[in-house]
């Protein structure tokens, strides 16, 4: 009995370390492992070298519907779903692997990692609680994250039909960076991130 729980605990610690390395907030670890809060905080400090950030997790489903986050969320969730349904993965195993595959794909494009691990986790939880669903784009046939019960008829995704100002920010950001490569003020850095 004692031996079994030790092995189990080792698995839990290993999962926690992996999640922390990938950017998990403390709330994710508390939900997904049986380790005590005190131990998780110590583990977090050991792995990251800093105290875990405080405050609530983002709790709105709306973020996942906005343009660029929706595209990244849909890619991640498509991978996650495939791992669970077709690759014989358990939930958390699939989650970690899907997140790594997502990072891998985005890094091929030198793109920003729009979807952080904690966001990805809340995404999975929203699907599990039925607040989000996948809708198929009638144009490209890809599956995209949408609010539950959103009208699926004639749905066209944000890549096939980008909103009129979508993508402008990146160009603007690049132009800005080129212009102000010399004079970097904190204000500019903040705007470029947002």
């Amino acid at each position: 009995m004692i031996e079994k729980s030790l092995v189990n605990e080792m698995h839990q610690v290993r999962l926690a370390i992996e999640l922390i390395e990938l950017g998990a907030r403390l709330q994710v670890l508390e939900t997904e492992t049986d380790l005590s809060r005190g131990r998780l905080i110590r583990l977090y400090k050991e792995v990251k070298g800093v105290s875990p950030p405080k405050g609530m997790l983002p709790f709105s489903t709306d973020w996942f519907i906005t343009w660029m986050p929706n595209i990244h969320s849909s890619l991640f969730y498509g991978i996650y779903r495939d791992l669970v349904e077709n690759c014989g993965c358990e939930r958390m195993e699939a989650f970690v692997k899907a997140f790594r595959l997502y990072l891998e794909q985005v890094s091929l494009d030198d793109g920003d990692f729009v979807l952080g691990l904690t966001r990805a986790w809340t995404l999975v939880r929203f699907f599990e609680s039925g607040m989000l669903e996948l809708i198929r784009c009638t144009c490209c046939g890809g599956d995209f994250v949408a609010h539950a019960h959103a009208p699926a008829k004639d749905f066209v995704c944000g890549i096939c039909l980008p909103p009129s100002r979508a993508g402008k920010t990146r160009k603007r950001r690049e132009a800005e960076q080129q212009q102000q490569s010399g004079e970097e003020t904190i204000k500019d850095a903040l705007r470029a991130r947002g």
Partner: peptide, 29 residues
Amino acid sequence: GHLAKVLNNTREPGLARLHAALLMTSADR
């Protein structure tokens, strides 16, 4: 047809690779 839409999207803002990857994760279904 779907792949052609991905590759020939004139409004597409530099997301063709991401789009193609997404399409393949949906393709199983």
